[in-house]
Design a binder for these strands. Structure first.
Lengths: 158, 158
DNA sequence: GCAACTTGGTTTAATAATGCAACCATCGGA
DNA sequence: TCCGATGGTTGCATTATTAAACCAAGTTGC
């Protein structure tokens, strides 16, 4: 195979996510959608990507159930791309990406926006990972276990 | 420009992160590194990617301060690729990717591993986003504000 | 109701990225 | 010192991305 490798059949959920939305444009399209954009032209103008690429990406996102097509809300005959619950579920990934940049970027001063809590207008906290009994966990506090019931005892990876 | 678009100069931190680690292999290399792999050959075998690509990716990750080269821990003349704090900071992104797949994948039964708390051996909770005063926040509870001090009032995007 | 503009694409052709396989220099072990 | 393992590099084929031109249907002005 000389084709771009696909992780669709990989048993690692990270690889599976990357296979679905792990390219730059898909992630940014979802970002724009979360921000309220819905129309082909809106995505195209705000992201500045080529229209043929946008076409392909939107189609893929719809196929995967991340976006869905709906009649335009302004009554015109055009269609809109709306986020499904699966699409809205990408939000934490985007927050994680944002916070990584905020914390480690070499030029943080070039970042012009802050994610705030709507109610108070104040910046949100960092994403937190907890154990079942609510201890805060870092990377070193976690491990991977084979999933009970999965007989395919393949390579165990993070 | 006909070159692959870069988001290096974009003011959106999500785009900046994607520019740094937003390709499939970089993310997976970091995943492997978090899981303890350090040597060129280890990455190559576990990920099954072409060696020339691995070379390029490792170099880029080192250049960005995500990995650093160190003399091999086994005393040989070879070198190892170790995560820097910036590299370990990618952990929440990987967790977010994992959890998205766990929650929304069409074939969740193909996922063979669970991320557990080392201490108890039990699965971790979902990543949580809190406001400053510890209210749990969803996508709809947040907004983007221009960063105080940033005069470049450009397009505000998620 | 019809010309002009907008929207939402498709097509084409060039350039860049990816993948595979073959090659190669150095290291390590017997 | 020979031979395999390690850590790459090189060359070539395939695929992806891009900009730009083109196009058909929907909408608007008049």
């Amino acid at each position: 195979m000389v084709k771009r490798t696909s992780f669709e059949k990989d048993d690692c959920p990270i690889a599976r996510s990357l296979d679905a939305i792990g390219d730059w444009w898909s992630m940014l399209i979802i970002r724009e959608a979360l921000f309220g954009r819905r129309r082909f032209g809106e995505f195209q103008k705000s992201l500045g990507l080529a229209k043929n690429i946008l076409t392909v990406r939107l189609r893929s996102l719809v196929d995967q159930g991340i976006l869905k097509l709906a009649p335009a809300s302004d009554g015109s005959a055009y269609q809109e791309y709306l986020l499904t619950p699966k699409g809205r579920g990408v939000f934490p990934i985007l927050v994680a990406l944002r916070q990584w940049s905020e914390e480690f970027d070499v030029h943080p001063e070039e970042i012009t926006t802050v994610l705030v809590d709507k109610q108070s207008g104040r910046p949100v906290r960092k994403l937190e990972l907890y154990s079942e009994d609510r201890r805060l966990l870092g990377a070193g506090d976690t491990a991977l276990k084979p999933r009970p019931g999965s007989k395919r005892a393949r390579r165990v990876s993070a």
